[in-house]
Measured scan of single mutants.
Amino acid sequence: MASQGTKRSYEQMETDGERQNATEIRASVGKMIDGIGRFYIQMCTELKLSDYEGRLIQNSLTIERMVLSAFDERRNKYLEEHPSAGKDPKKTGGPIYKRVDRKWMRELVLYDKEEIRRIWRQANNGDDATAGLTHMMIWHSNLNDTTYQRTRALVRTGMDPRMCSLMQGSTLPRRSGAAGAAVKGVGTMVMELIRMIKRGINDRNFWRGENGRKTRSAYERMCNILKGKFQTAAQRAMMDQVRESRNPGNAEIEDLIFLARSALILRGSVAHKSCLPACVYGPAVASGYDFEKEGYSLVGIDPFKLLQNSQVYSLIRPNENPAHKSQLVWMACNSAAFEDLRVLSFIRGTKVSPRGKLSTRGVQIASNENMDAMESSTLELRSRYWAIRTRSGGNTNQQRASAGQISVQPAFSVQRNLPFDKPTIMAAFTGNTEGRTSDMRAEIIRMMEGAKPEEMSFQGRGVFELSDERAANPIVPSFDMSNEGSYFFGDNAEEYDN
């Protein structure tokens, strides 16, 4: 993207840094990872977990959730003011799984939030270390993106479920800051804005008074975040219109849905970061690795190297396929839920299948599930090659597409044709070009129609051997075009429920 120079890199967003050079960025990201790792080690000690239990991804998720809940100030305040039966607002906890007599047992633990905050700050040299908290939120978000298709949420806001490739980060909490905003897809931002506008339509006082002023500035800020994701002048001009509207209503909703559809071809720039579970960072720190000293990046080879040398386990339900569970977590670790499966298959070195073909449910185990038949197995999170994460949407291309997802959002900077089903997408653009945004709409449609099938995206960008740390010898991959490109292809993934 041309304006790259004016933006802070995501590592800076990730670490609240002012302008830093590459070495400083690597050190501050490393410091953040160190903090998460030290916190995780301490929690495993508190909970008396064995090494194996500490490497269980379900335990990692519970521990991450506990610290996120302990620092969720708004919710904590709300819980104190609106006490609900049987919930102690000062405590947080969740299921911890232990191996007892050759069987997995679930144990519900409860801790004072104050105590968890103390352990977290102690692991982070006394700081609140917001960057580390956001990092864990993005890992949870990436896992949700890989596990669930947001059909219901899309339909509720009037969008087409086939636009799911635009929904990265749709389950990120509001408090995820600049680093969170960077990884949100165009569809996620559109959905947040539509929800806001709908509230304004239904509630006369939404934009009024002292609160209304705050609401208005939040609305304009979200519009600017979305505008910054678009790469064409016409899309940005249309966002200006939406932002400046005196009284946002149905016309703005129409414009936003139009823009979301246009992003299936004229893709937005959305950041991709490899955020790993805390149970990967903990053992690495415990083994003596100093992330701050060595430096770390979320968008280069580092996460690949770390996963190459990590042992992570997962509980497996009786009829689940461990290899499929591994694929789910591998995609989440690489922030690749909406990437082209052919690119992923090449990088991973084994075939990556669409969601609907995987015999696996989510990673988390519900409290009512029976533990008797639970097994555990090693997650295979290694890769054959590594590639640089991208934040450009890439230019655009036609490809055989599917009944489910009709476009992709690249996660890796790797040369390819970008699949999208042009006739299906263009069919949504018939007729409606009147109104105050008509010239911009016409211009956007013209650009979409001009998108050429034979153009290559990320020209000359390749993948790298894991021994090639400096990215000196790019390998331009070859793809098996007979395979499906979309992950949520004609899909039956479970729906995400809060």
Rank of each mutant, 00 (worst) to 15 (best):
Q4K: 02
T6H: 08
R8P: 02
S9K: 10
D16N: 14
G17H: 01
V29N: 14
V29D: 06
L47M: 12
D51N: 00
E53N: 04
G54T: 04
I57Q: 08
I57N: 08
Q58M: 06
L61R: 04
L68Y: 10
A70S: 01
E73Q: 15
K77L: 02
Y78G: 09
E80T: 01
G86R: 00
D88S: 02
K91P: 05
K98C: 13
R106C: 10
E107S: 01
E107Q: 13
V109D: 07
V109N: 11
L110T: 15
D112K: 06
R121C: 09
Q122V: 03
A123Y: 07
N125Y: 06
D127Y: 14
D127A: 08
A129G: 04
N142T: 13
L143I: 06
L143Y: 06
T146S: 14
R150G: 13
T151E: 10
V155R: 01
T157R: 04
S165R: 10
L166H: 05
M167Q: 10
G169E: 07
R175T: 05
R175Y: 10
G180V: 05
A181S: 05
A182G: 04
V183K: 09
V186G: 15
G187Q: 13
T188I: 06
T188C: 03
M191R: 15
M191N: 00
E192G: 15
E192R: 02
R195S: 06
K198A: 08
R199W: 13
F206L: 06
N211E: 04
E220M: 08
N224D: 09
N224V: 10
I225Y: 01
K227R: 06
A237F: 10
M238N: 13
G249V: 12
G249N: 09
A251E: 10
A251K: 10
E254S: 12
L256H: 09
L256M: 14
I257F: 01
R261L: 08
H272T: 08
L276D: 12
P283W: 08
A284R: 00
D290E: 06
D290Y: 14
E294R: 00
E294F: 02
S297Q: 10
I301V: 05
I301W: 03
D302H: 04
S310A: 00
I316N: 08
I316T: 14
N321I: 04
Q327F: 12
L328Y: 10
V329M: 04
W330S: 01
F338Q: 07
L341C: 06
I347K: 13
V352F: 10
S353V: 00
P354G: 15
L358C: 08
L358Y: 11
L358Q: 11
S359E: 00
T360D: 09
R361G: 03
G362H: 11
Q364V: 06
A366N: 07
N368I: 14
D372P: 14
M374H: 07
M374P: 15
E375I: 12
S376Q: 08
R384T: 01
W386K: 11
A387M: 11
T390I: 03
G393H: 08
N395E: 07
N395P: 06
T396R: 14
Q399I: 15
A401L: 08
G404Y: 06
S407F: 10
S407N: 05
Q409H: 12
F412E: 15
Q415Y: 15
R416L: 13
F420N: 00
K422P: 09
P423E: 00
A427T: 15
A427L: 15
A428R: 00
T430Q: 01
T430N: 02
T430W: 04
G431I: 07
G431H: 14
N432V: 02
R441T: 07
A442R: 00
E443N: 13
I444M: 15
R446K: 15
E449S: 01
E449W: 10
M456L: 13
R461H: 08
E465V: 04
E469T: 02
A471H: 10
A472Q: 02
S478I: 06
N492Q: 15
